[in-house]
Design a protein around this nucleic acid. Structure first.
Lengths: 246, 246
DNA sequence: TGTTGACCCTGACGTAACGTCAGACCTTAC
DNA sequence: GTAAGGTCTGACGTTACGTCAGGGTCAACA
């Protein structure tokens, strides 16, 4: 009843190649039930079941090593395995989405008639922004991130970027005019800084604390992370804040 | 003005490793502008521009070989390049989506308390269905596929599958009773077949013609494509159709 | 001057999952 | 007997580097 198959026929049953069968054989992942006198591999229906399991697990993204472990250890928790694999693939898809966004933004720039290197720079920027995001997320709890996402729409974000840039300019101007951080100009600037930070934290002291932690941890910043202010501006801001912290 | 960088420093500027720089050097993808007396690689700001281009192109999914071609050939059509790459990535994401769906269906089966192999078989089934879809799509034009998608909801599809299965059973019964394809039973069956095909084609003669082409092209069917009817049923259907084709 | 520690070099091997020869053997049909 | 088609093993190629291993360089410090 249980007939045997030669390599080619058996391979076609599961939609793989003969060479793949050789490969699985050498790995010990699927060894044929027997050999003919001439040394030909002879597979059976039981082998087919195993091969189909292998194909299925490979399809959902496991490596051959993982499959070997899964199939050897007898009582696999398939539910957990599937969930874990689903999460990994979902993460991958998320990464693809972000890459696609980067390309789309670059295409926009090309469409606007900009030069090629401007578009490539845009991609680099998107990469860096995303790296930055990933890295910053480590500093906040999941709830804080959820709150931030609600509060921090792209428009708000852009406005905030402009506000900070303007603040930086004004600080430079103040320094150029020889103002002291402890003077009236310093007070105004410290206040504006307070407001901007408040906008970001949304009044949440936990977020504020973590922002502080992130900011003072400069030693651990990723290398290609550009610092927001020049040293001089930074010092002025610090001094002003110290002088007028309520 | 234009200072030079040693490997480590230069690598950090673009967020890559020293070993990657060695690699790009050997490939000729990015050769340092100079070497120190001791043989150390010396990179310049111009090298940095190139490295950043490389990183950007790599990020959006090009291989190093492709990048080399792109950067060497001077006037790249970046717009076309980006579009093409976007399409490739979109296709990849689509594949991921389908894999995720397969996992979710398998999880459902596990959640229903079924055994592990039932879940894995489900995955295999999903793979085969998708392969089948991909393969069948080659036989229809884009417009025909659009029309089919509208007409062919999952429910309709399931109903159709049941109808075909029922028809096959009735044919087997007719054969068992010794009925002739040219008899009254054959006429009824030929009519039911006509109706089912009409349901699929939606009356579109182009779709009907391509379905016919697909069906008669059995020699080219993928190997793991299971044929819908047994030979006997198939023959009966053919004869009946021939006898009563209007 | 010698030494330490931080860099740098090249070359060779490893990775994952097979594909692609190359050289040799088996089977079967005409 | 031979020609066609299937099978075997072994070796190298693929991608983008990581990881040693063995050996040189540079700056500072004792």
């Amino acid at each position: 009843m249980s007939r045997t198959y030669h390599a080619r026929e058996f391979a076609r049953l599961a939609g793989v190649t003969v060479r793949a069968l050789h490969h699985y054989d050498r790995l010990g992942l699927l060894q044929p039930s027997g050999r003919s006198d001439a040394g030909y591999r002879l597979y059976t229906d039981r082998d087919l079941v195993r091969l189909e399991e292998i194909v299925a697990l490979k399809f959902i993204g496991f490596t051959l090593n993982q499959i070997q472990e899964l199939l050897n250890r007898k009582n696999i928790d398939l539910a957990a395995t599937l969930r874990q694999q689903r999460e990994i693939l979902a993460e991958k898809r998320h990464g693809l989405d972000r890459t696609l966004q980067a390309i789309e933004q670059a295409e926009q720039i090309v469409a606007c008639g900009e030069a090629a290197d401007a578009a490539l720079r845009k991609i680099i920027e998107v990469i860096q922004v995303q790296n930055k995001k990933d890295w910053m997320q480590k500093y906040y709890t999941q709830e804080q991130l959820d709150g931030l996402r609600k509060r921090w729409s792209p428009e708000v974000q852009e406005q905030s970027q402009r506000d900070w840039a303007e603040l930086a300019q004004d600080v430079e101007a103040a320094i150029a005019r020889g103002e002291e951080p402890s003077g009236e100009a310093g007070r105004l600037i410290a206040q504006r800084r307070q407001n901007l930070i408040g906008q970001f934290t949304g009044g949440d002291p936990g977020v504020a604390a973590n922002l502080q932690k992130l900011y003072t941890d400069e030693a651990n910043w990723p290398s290609n992370f550009k610092r927001p202010f020049s040293d001089a501006v930074n010092r002025f801001l610090c001094e002003a804040t110290k002088a007028f912290s309520t």
